[in-house]
Design a protein around this nucleic acid. Sequence first.
DNA 1: ATGGTAGGTCTCCTA
Length: 262
Amino acid sequence: MAVTIATWNINSVRLREPIVLDLLRDEAPDILCLQETKSPVDKIPVEGFAEAGYPYMVARGQKGYNGVAILSRLPIEDAGQRDFCAKGDARHVAARLADGTVIHNFYVPAGGDEPDRERNEKFGHKLDFLTEMRDWFHGGKPERAIMVGDLNIAPREDDVWDHKKLLKVVSHTPIEVEQLAQVQDSGAWVDITRADIPEGKLYSWWSYRARDWDAADKGRRLDHIWATPDLASGAGGSRILRACRGWEKPSDHAPVLASFDL
DNA sequence: ATGGTAGGTCTCCTA
């Protein structure tokens, strides 16, 4: 069965319910993973999503910050969450499909402005979060698993608009790239987007602060879809929907999609 | 070198 999965940092699910519904109508993914919902779970506008054909949801939330949700038109069950760094943040949740496939939805800390954990505790938090991800996946090699989300790291030179200019900018520093590689190795994860689209610049995020994000095109690929090797062999159809960044009242992130043969 | 915009919440924090 072909299953299409989308991931999108939505930057407030309540404010952006209309464009979530537009995406569901236009692209009809089977599963949509959202990050930065910025809403308690009981205030997510589930009625609209159910009417659009997505009656299933697994989510974690808190007031004002963070928050992750998995919307589905296929039955899913709650597969729990991990409280990374024991801060009580809603940054991870997992769902299980009927065939046993597990989908992890992550919102990795952005890490603040200064790439120095001695001077910026948010950067330390980000590095600690990545270390805990690495150790967690290493503990039990995942199988039939997909992991998506806003990982807040653009690993490759062609994942950013200017590699040299961004070497000291949080999201593309060598230590972050190295730690993300360790997370990927620990679960034998395949970067599905780059397996499908190996060449060329690829971005999923453009800052709100740019005067003309489209013309300047100073983007970064912060949003990822990974899968274990058993599922990667049947994956394809990767896309990043740049046009959504230009929609009315947009998120600063664009949706990333991939299809799997499950 | 700097400041630029956006969202949630309640005065400034986070991205």
